[in-house]
Design a protein around this nucleic acid. Sequence first.
DNA 1: CTCCAGAAAA
DNA 2: TTTTCAGGAG
Length: 220
Amino acid sequence: MNRQRMDLLHDIFHRLYETFGPQHWWPADSPFEVVIGAILTQNTAWKNVRQAIGKLRERDLLQLDHLDAVPQEELATLIRASGYYNQKARKLKAFCSHVKHFWQSDLAAFLAQEAESLREELLGIFGIGQETADSIVLYAAHKPCFVVDAYTHRIFSRHGWVPEEITYQEMRSYFEEALERDVALFKEYHALLVRTGHLYCRKKPLCDSCPLGDYPVPNI
DNA sequence: CTCCAGAAAA
DNA sequence: TTTTCAGGAG
């Protein structure tokens, strides 16, 4: 395998880990709560998602059969703080409905299947795209699937480590082929990249104080 | 490419 | 006030 890439990825990880420490992802009390969070946080700040999940917890809706029984309109008002609430209410209902019909609401059994088939089945559910599917595979099913998000692409393309027009699949392979298949490593790596993107690799980048700021960034 | 949408930082 | 956000569907 590409030794250069392996060294680069490990060096970046250690720098970020030394800087930020463990991120304790995913912040949730159960696999189902991970799924809910993964859908609610789509293009939305996590602070808003926490408020929405708090509302669901108040009503004891952080269980699949409970959430499945709530009308979509009522669910939408409860998750209002997370934005796109009508879309996301429909997405949550679609997930519950799928597991209910195909797995008799046995979420643990659904998540226990082999990683690739789980990923493909997730992608067939309304509202679950590649990043959300991979987040669920990694943080709810605890299988080694590297999660790529907008920050990951932004950080790596800005440094010239990957081409700007790289696809999601190519980005995922870029990491999975160079890193050991370690679930804990994948969980921590993605969390650290999100932290870095959130704090420094913004649309208006703050390279001066960024822990990766001394890596060369080619002029565009 | 456009729509979905509220919250909090900038 | 404007920008940005742990994206995905049509």
